[in-house]
Amino acid sequence: MSKKKKIKAIGLIVEDISDYNSFKIIISRVLQKNNLTFKKAIGNGCGKMRRKALSYADTLSRKGCDLVILVHDLDRNNLKTLKADLDKLMDKSRVKNKFVCIPIEEIEGWFLGDPEGIRDAFNLIRTPKIKGRPESVTSPKEKLEDYVYQCSNKFKLYLNTQHNELLSNSLDLEKISAKCKSFKNLEEFIKEFDY
C-alpha cells in the first residue's frame, strides 16, 4: 500500500468568510482533527473568485499550502461546464494537490441533508419536512430560512452569515454524505492525504 502524501496546510478559495469558517469546521470534522492549518483567499462573489482563482491558488501555494480547495456554488450553472472550466483554471496552478468543490446548489443544500440536526441546532418546535434529495432543492438557502421560520412558529430567523458555523459544527456529516454527492466527493478527496 502506498504511503499517503503529507499535507501541512490547506488553502481554501471561497466566496466569503462564512464559507471559509464553515469549510474549516466541516473538513476538521471529516478528518477528526482539530489542529489543521488553514489559509484563505476570499473571492467576495463567484465572478471575482473565478477571475482570480489561479492567482489565489498560487498565492496560497507560496504561503505554504500543499493542498488547495476551490469552493464554488453551483447556483444555476451547468455542473459539467462549471466543473470543466474551474478544473482548467486550477490545472494551470503550481499547486500539486488541488480540488474543485461545487456544493449543489450551495452549502445550504448540504445542510438540508440533516433535518433533525437543523431542528436540534435551532431548537425548533418541529422537524423540517424536506422532500426529495437535498441537492435537488432549488434555492436551498431561502428554503432553509423558510424551514427555520415556519418550524419555529415564525419566531426564529436563519441568517447564513451567523448560523452556517453552528450548522457546520452540529449536523450529522454521515447523513449529509449519504444524501449529497458533492459533499461525498469532497470527503473522499480529503481522506486521500495524511495530515
Rank of each mutant, 00 (worst) to 15 (best):
K33Q: 09
S93K: 03
K175S: 04
S168H: 02
M49H: 05
G47T: 11
L31W: 06
K92Y: 13
E187N: 13
K129F: 15
D66I: 03
E135Y: 01
P140L: 04
S93G: 01
L124W: 02
K5N: 13
R94S: 15
M1I: 06
I190P: 08
I17A: 12
K80M: 11
F155A: 07
S93E: 05
F99Q: 04
T81W: 14
L89M: 06
L166T: 00
K4N: 07
E174N: 08
I26S: 09
S139R: 15
P115W: 02
M49T: 12
K154M: 11
L70V: 07
F38P: 00
E145R: 06
E187Q: 15
D75C: 03
N164C: 15
R119H: 10
L67M: 03
K6G: 13
G132I: 03
I130G: 09
S18F: 09
T37L: 11
L167C: 02
A41Q: 06
V14T: 02
D146P: 09
G113K: 04
K154A: 08
D120V: 15
A9C: 12
E15D: 06
L74E: 05
N78V: 09
T59R: 13
V148P: 02
T127V: 10
K141R: 06
D91E: 08
E192W: 11
S18T: 14
E174F: 06
L89I: 14
A57E: 04
C101Q: 09
I118A: 07
D146S: 11
M49N: 12
F99M: 10
M90I: 01
L166Q: 00
P115A: 01
P134H: 07
K129N: 14
R29Q: 08
V148W: 10
G109N: 07
S152R: 01
R51I: 11
M90E: 03
L124K: 07
E192T: 15
